[in-house]
């Protein structure tokens, strides 16, 4: 009975306190692609310094999974997928308010563990069956781009895993469990335990990150300010520092 009392009391406290349920009005909730993890964390820090009243809250994951969460009514102010088509679909469905703003570009690259023990030199090494190789699952943009890269360069890859997002792939390469993985060029810069093997020009695939407020955004003013920050303010230079390509204004 005492335990039951605790449970009921805790539940009541939780319902009373705002911390358990609703977010605070000053929160700016940003749903961003997993490949943006480090750059958005750095941007958050700078932006919060410049705007002391605003607390940026990040939700990072696979672009399609984030899209699904927004469809189901997740509490988001801004959406930044790694694929403009996902954004276009979200705008068409009325879940996100267009027009979107392009803020960064990214290209594929091969990540190998430090020292490149398996001597991976190009995408064609992904046909070597004796290596442990990974890409992202087709459900996320980096997986679709990797598939496209294999298709255009006519390579039949001998894969060992298709990871649910680019960061779990990067982690397996960084830990040396995989000999190579197809990630974004910005990911390679993000982890000192991996080295970059550039793709040949004809193997290359790229994507653009676009940002737009969700139709349910509750913090429109802060959202607008964050978009400006990323597009032309200090955020723009942070994006470049993290190895992303810039987009023409």
């Amino acid at each position: 009975m005492r335990l039951g009392g605790f449970a009921v009391g805790g539940l009541a406290l939780c319902l009373l306190a705002t911390s358990c349920s609703a977010r605070s009005d000053d929160d700016l909730v940003v749903f961003g692609a997993a490949s943006l993890t480090d750059v958005l964390q750095a941007a958050e820090e700078q932006f919060e310094q410049d705007n002391p009243g605003i607390d940026v809250v990040l939700n990072l994951g696979g672009s399609n999974a984030l899209r699904e969460q927004i469809r189901s009514g997740a509490d988001a102010d801004l959406f930044i997928p790694a694929d403009p088509e996902i954004m276009a679909e979200a705008i068409a469905a009325g879940d996100v308010d267009g027009p979107e703003t392009a803020i960064a570009r990214n290209e594929l690259a091969i990540a190998v563990p430090a020292g490149n023990p398996a001597d991976v030199q190009s995408l064609s090494d992904f046909a070597r069956p004796e290596l442990l190789l990974g890409i992202c699952a087709s459900a996320v943009p980096c997986g679709q781009l990797a598939r496209a890269a294999f298709a255009t360069s006519d390579i039949d890859p001998s894969l060992d895993t298709e990871e649910p997002d680019v960061r779990s792939l990067l982690a397996k390469v960084a830990g040396g469990e995989l000999d190579a993985g197809v990630v974004y060029i910005s990911d390679v810069a993000a982890d000192p335990r991996v080295e970059l093997v550039a793709l040949k020009a004809w193997e290359q695939q790229s994507t653009t990150y676009v940002i737009a407020p969700t139709s349910g955004a509750t913090n429109a003013a802060a959202a607008k300010r964050f978009v400006d920050f990323l597009q032309q303010g200090e955020g723009r230079s942070i994006i470049q520092q993290f190895g992303f390509g810039s987009v023409s204004r």
């Binding site: 990974g134 699952a137 459900a139 060992d160 895993t161 298709e162 990871e163 649910p164 397996k172």
Partner: peptide, 17 residues
Amino acid sequence: AGNLQGRTQTLPLAVFV
């Protein structure tokens, strides 16, 4: 074990992906 169709992609993994 990672996630590869036909080798390590079990039912729950296939659902998630």
